[in-house]
């Protein structure tokens, strides 16, 4: 009986990093795209950063679809 601990560890590590990373980046995107003061829009910088975050998430989704289809 040989249990593939390496593969299990890899799955664990990648899942943890990917999940926490994506949730963090997406949350940054949400925070950046919503203005804290209400009323006026977010600053241009924050908005640009938010779009970058969302783009990163979209890239991750595209990679996920690629993994499914491959």
């Amino acid at each position: 009986m040989d249990i593939d601990w390496a593969a299990l560890g890899e799955v664990f590590g990648i899942s943890l990093v990917a999940t926490v990373g994506l949730v963090g980046v997406f949350t940054l995107g949400i925070l950046g795209s919503s203005s804290p003061a209400g009323g006026g829009g977010a600053t241009t910088l924050a908005r640009t950063g938010a779009y970058a975050c969302f783009a990163l998430c979209a890239a991750a989704v595209a990679f996920g679809i690629y993994l499914i289809a491959a």
């Binding site: 899942s15 943890l16 999940t19 926490v20 963090g24 949350t27 940054l28 949400i30 925070l31 804290p36």
Partner: peptide, 25 residues
């Protein structure tokens, strides 16, 4: 595996949005 990842991700998102408008997030 999935539980630990989800737990840390949940903690992180709540920590980050502590001061944010809940409806928007």
């Amino acid at each position: 595996v999935a539980g630990v990842a989800a737990m840390f991700a949940t903690r992180l998102s709540y920590a980050m949005t502590r001061n944010a408008d809940e409806a928007r997030t």
